[in-house]
Design a protein around this nucleic acid. Structure first.
Length: 430
DNA sequence: TCTGGGGTCCTAGGACCC
DNA sequence: TCTGGGGTCCTAGGACCC
């Protein structure tokens, strides 16, 4: 049997952890640049604040209802996530835990009886809450997709279910599928949902579980759809995956805090995003062989601007910020067009390989020329020291190319302290 | 006026090879 | 009018996820 543990309103719960006075009050967390709402407490959901709604549309409602508003604080959420996952690993053993996202993990459970499964799920839920302060929901089923469905039902009705739902008998599964709209299934998004309804008259999960594999292959994206339908029928087709700690692609992209016109500012932004991406790369002991940059211009009155991108293959894979920044700046120079207004830029690293197994370049006489020790020293210092009195900066040691004014930086007006990851921002007890 | 950021997997189609 | 058959690799783009 498979289970999925999912943290309730994760980002909001993290904020509340350090401000218990917010318990029972509506809370929301905003996306980067304070653009839209990406996490809501139950109280905020009840006020009718939708997921993903732009801040400006609900500003007065938030104010009138005295909703506590936070900018996103990824240092805090990442650390809380790690704590939750550690508890799961302690309970089940780390081979049985697959971290799926910042707030979700799949668990491999034994084939126990129904009551025992429910007891186990409940005890996991309680243990996590007791040790981390984060409330979670647990869904259990014969496949990952059905576990997801169980979890959804658990969250939908927290009081009745105690945040735990087990789907183990055929009739339980049938009933759950019947009461779930097809687009609410894991793996069916808006596009397929619409097609299934309008073209095939398939509205709920039970109908979809009945289609043939040929149908799924043909109309739901090939093997992806086939796997999904098999999972609904109770045949495990998405096995537990090895913790793939190494990402295959690393991106740092941001909206600017204001309109940007000058190449110099774009270069600063690209340099600082590249430095950030390189940091992520080094954290997983990798090097990248491919680098791409893009900038997006602002078309007045339109939702989407025009994208300009450029990429290169590096002579040899690298995780050296200065090497990557140099390459990125060269790329951005080639695509910048004066006279446009820019609103966003980004850097993507690809062709990622383990740093230890890099293929050297045939023409490179100096293979040890990477500044890895220097880079690691920089990472260490940046991790432990906050940038004192310089709110426009995230780190104390930076590359000159990233600039000093940084007027383009994203807005973060409501960020809480990084309680658990920066010494100077630790909570104080009187 | 103001709408995020970071990932994965898969398919189709073109270029190229023998 | 008729014009081989199979591979592989790469890229772009679609769809989905949190």
């Amino acid at each position: 049997m498979k289970a999925i543990v999912d943290c309730n309103n994760f980002y909001c719960s993290c904020e509340r952890l350090f401000q218990p006075r917010l318990e029972g009050r509506p809370v929301v967390v905003l996306s980067n640049n304070d653009g839209c709402v990406i996490s809501r407490s139950d109280e905020a959901k009840k006020l009718g604040i939708d997921m993903g709604v732009p801040l400006f549309e609900v500003r007065s409602l938030l104010h009138a209802q005295q909703v506590a508003v936070f900018s996103s604080n990824y240092a805090l959420y990442g650390d809380c996530s790690w704590r939750v996952m550690q508890v799961l690993r302690e309970i089940l053993g780390k081979e049985r835990v697959e971290v799926y996202s910042v707030d979700e993990a799949f668990l491999e459970l034994d084939e126990l009886g129904r009551e025992q499964l429910e007891k186990l799920a409940l005890s996991i839920r309680n243990q996590v809450e007791q040790w981390t302060g984060i409330r979670v929901s647990v869904g259990v089923g014969p496949t990952k997709t059905l576990a997801k469905l169980a979890n959804r039902l658990a969250k939908k009705n927290k009081t009745a279910t105690n945040c735990v739902v087990v789907l183990s008998t055929d009739s339980e599964i049938e009933e759950a599928l019947r009461c779930t709209a097809v687009a609410d299934l894991w793996g069916i998004g808006g596009r397929y949902g619409k097609q299934l309804r309008e073209r095939w008259g398939i509205y709920d999960g039970w109908q979809l579980a009945k289609v043939s594999e040929t149908f799924a292959t043909k109309y739901l994206g090939g093997v992806v759809g086939t796997r999904l339908v098999r999972e609904l029928k109770g045949i495990p087709s998405r096995e537990m995956e090895d913790e793939r700690t190494r990402k295959k692609m690393i991106a740092t992209t941001r909206m600017f805090g204001r309109k940007v016109y000058e190449l110099q500012e774009i270069r600063e932004a690209i340099a600082s995003y590249t430095a950030r991406a390189a940091e992520k790369l080094r954290r997983q002991f990798s090097a990248a062989g491919y680098l791409s940059v893009f900038i997006i211009s602002h078309a007045p009155g339109q939702r989407h601007g025009m994208a300009y991108d450029n990429h290169c293959i590096l002579d040899k894979p690298s995780s050296d910020s200065s090497v990557l920044i140099r390459a990125a700046l060269k790329l951005v120079n080639a695509i910048f067009k004066p006279g446009l207004v820019y609103k966003k830029a980004g850097v993507v690293l690809g062709d990622i390989v383990p740093a230890a197994a890099r293929q050297g370049s045939l023409f490179d006489t100096n293979n040890t020329n990477d500044n890895l020790p220097l880079m690691l020293a920089i990472d260490n210092i940046n991790f432990s020291c906050p940038p004192a009195h310089q709110p426009q900066h995230d780190s104390i040691l930076r590359f000159a190319a990233a600039g000093t004014n940084r007027g383009w930086k994203m807005k973060q007006e409501f960020r809480s302290p990084r309680y658990t990851t920066k010494w100077r921002e630790m909570p104080r007890a009187r």
